[in-house]
């Protein structure tokens, strides 16, 4: 019977959504499912009912890239599971490839689909900003990095009483030291609570043109949000960032102006009730998830719309 390990992820003592998404997927693949937990998270093993077993590798409660990678490496070296699921996340990025590379186990990143195929797995990665689906065949053992939101978390969010085993792991040389967890800065507007969002991407072109979005937002009683590059450029505050390293939003209406729809952005807004995308690139991935689309120049559209309002 195949053995799948799910490397759980937690923050502030809570398992993160990706944990349950991976557990649900692991369960659907069949075989035995083991959840690997860190720090004192074994105390919450009852939340991991989708797993048949839980292995605690201990270590600090606060995520430490060096320590968690060393612990996982020592565990996999001894247990040799067929498949290891790790989040394609900030944490997963630090540990999946170092462990895979050190143990000579292949790693596939950004996976949106995983199927068992003879003697291994077929994984589909979303690459090139979401413009290509790339299928890889890999023989087991394999480490697969699972994209956030790729799988439904509900089937993995089951309470139960899996067996709990303590594993005496290695923790590395102490070259990386956790100092502090920093909570998000207080914001003037909490975009996760907004009813309507006018979100802007690189297509907006310049800092001065952010005004165009602000005017539209005002007319619609909406708030303004944006993609990572705009926040990095300082055009909008960090508290307005939607996506992988920003916030997850699900407003009633999400109006995407000049947003191509990179996977990192889509992860943060795909659950919006209605998505309206305006982008001149008709092949932009945003149109695959939008309910309504326009390929006209966003400034023309907004100007025409403002005239109508």
């Amino acid at each position: 019977m195949s053995e799948t390990f799910v490397v759980t992820e937690h923050l502030n003592g809570e398992f993160q959504d990706i944990t349950f998404e991976m557990l649900g997927k692991a369960k659907s693949l069949g075989g035995n499912v083991t959840a690997v937990v860190f720090g004192s998270m074994k105390d919450k093993a009852s939340e991991l009912g989708a797993a048949d077993a839980v292995i605690s590798v201990g270590g600090s409660d606060d995520y430490n890239p060096e320590e968690y990678a060393a612990a996982l490496k020592s565990l996999l070296n001894e247990k040799n599971p067929d498949l290891v699921l790790v989040g394609s996340t900030s944490m997963g990025m630090d540990i999946a490839t170092p462990v895979g590379t050190a143990l000579d186990i292949p790693v596939i990143a950004y996976c949106q689909a995983i199927e068992a195929s003879d003697g291994g797995y077929t994984c589909t990665s979303q690459l090139y900003g979401g413009k290509m689906d790339v299928e890889s065949k890999v023989s087991s053992p394999a480490i697969v990095m699972v994209s956030s939101g790729a799988f439904d978390g509900e089937s993995g969010r089951v309470s139960g009483s899996p067996s709990v085993e303590d594993f005496s792991a290695e923790y590395g040389a102490g070259k990386v030291r956790f100092k502090a967890l920093l909570s998000p800065e207080a914001a003037d507007v909490d975009i996760t609570q907004s009813n309507i969002l006018v979100a802007i991407g690189r297509g907006i072109g310049s800092k001065d043109d952010v005004e165009v979005a602000e005017e539209l937002a005002k007319a619609l009683k909406a708030d303004v949000a944006g993609t990572r590059p705009l926040i990095d450029a300082g055009w909008l505050p960090k508290s307005r960032q939607v996506g992988k390293s920003g916030l997850k939003v699900k407003p009633k209406v999400y109006i995407a102006l000049g947003i191509s729809g990179a996977p990192e952005h889509i992860e943060g807004m795909k659950d919006s009730s209605t998505i309206i995308a305006i982008n001149t690139d008709k092949n932009a991935p945003i149109f695959d998830i939008a309910h309504y689309g326009m390929t006209e120049d966003l400034f023309d559209v907004v100007e025409d719309l403002m005239d109508e309002l």
């Binding site: 923050l11 944490m91 990386v176 030291r177 920093l182 960032q241 916030l247």
Partner: peptide
């Protein structure tokens, strides 16, 4: 950086 706007400080 983590998701949700969280960050952690490390020494390396």
């Amino acid at each position: 950086e983590y998701s949700g706007g969280f960050m952690a400080e490390y020494e390396v």
